[in-house]
């Protein structure tokens, strides 16, 4: 009875979750060449796994020189933002099956920041803009508080959306204005300024608005919505920027 055996083999073959996926990764090693090149890797991978798992497989089993950032690997630390199939995403939140695995999956470093090696970019300009908006609570009362700073649920809800930012730079590096010269504050810095400007406990909103009134501040936003599309946390980034603009205008007039 050969048929049942054949059936079983076929069933086993079809039950295997693994498929072959091509990862097309933009490699750049300054010690080898000044040019970045695309390199293909063939992987056996379960489509329910994430792009980050694929990168791990490459780094651990195929080519140890592949360089990328990741820390928590669960969408919270914001280390592994990269340009996957032409869109900024977190490698740890992007499933292979959502990417059309029949075609090669392209993985590039995020744009607008200097590439140091492979998928690692220099985040310093990004964090400089973040520091410039003073992302910490400032109060006029400088004595050490003796009790908790209370806030109503409505006041907390006012800036709830922008508290979700994980500083992955997916938004800022998707912004065409930031791509040009990197002097624009960028969506991420404005989102983090928004988080304090609209916090009822904070008293430096005026200062932050003044900072964002800069030539390279909110007025360089062209409302292309790239940032809102790119945000892995689903923050309505463009809306937050518009709210800062509105606050600036209503403050003046």
């Amino acid at each position: 009875m050969a048929t049942p055996v054949l059936d079983k083999v076929e069933a086993e073959a079809s039950a295997s979750p693994y498929i072959t996926v091509t990862f097309r990764i933009r490699r750049f090693n300054p010690e080898v060449s000044a040019e970045a090149v695309w390199e293909d890797f063939q992987l056996e991978i379960d489509p329910k796994e994430r792009v980050l798992d694929g990168l791990h497989k490459i780094k651990w089993d195929l080519d140890g020189t592949l360089t990328f950032r990741r820390s928590c690997a669960h969408g919270i630390c914001g280390s592994d933002a990269m340009r996957i199939n032409g869109r900024n995403r977190l490698a740890c939140k992007t499933l292979i099956k959502d990417l059309n695995p029949e075609k090669p999956i392209t993985v590039e470093p995020i744009k607008g920041l200097t590439v140091l090696k492979d998928l690692v970019v220099d985040m310093e300009p990004f964090f400089q803009a973040y520091r410039d908006v003073m992302p910490f609570l400032i109060t006029k009362e400088t004595n050490e508080p003796t009790r908790e700073r209370l806030q109503s649920a409505e006041d907390r809800a006012r800036f709830d959306d922008t508290t979700k930012c994980i500083l992955c730079a997916a938004c800022t590096s998707s912004c065409p204005v930031f791509w040009n010269d990197g002097q624009y504050f960028g969506p991420a810095a404005i989102v983090n300024a928004h988080r304090f400007i609209f916090d009822s406990r904070d008293e430096a909103g005026e200062q932050r608005l003044e900072i964002l009134n800069d030539r390279d501040g909110v007025w360089r936003c062209r409302t292309t919505f790239n940032c809102t599309d790119a945000c892995p946390r689903g923050i309505e980034v463009t809306k937050a920027i518009a709210e800062v603009k509105k606050a600036l205008i209503t403050r003046r007039f």
Binding site: P30, A34, T114, L116, P125, G217, R220, L248, R252
Partner: peptide
């Protein structure tokens, strides 16, 4: 260390940096 061109940190204070690029011109223009 930087074979790719460096990007200057935004609003870095250098000799040629204007005192303040603030003011309401961009707001008014917008």
């Amino acid at each position: 260390d930087h074979p790719a061109p460096l990007i200057e940190a935004p609003r870095r204070r250098t000799k040629k940096t204007p005192k303040s690029t603030r003011g309401n011109f961009e707001l008014a223009a917008w």
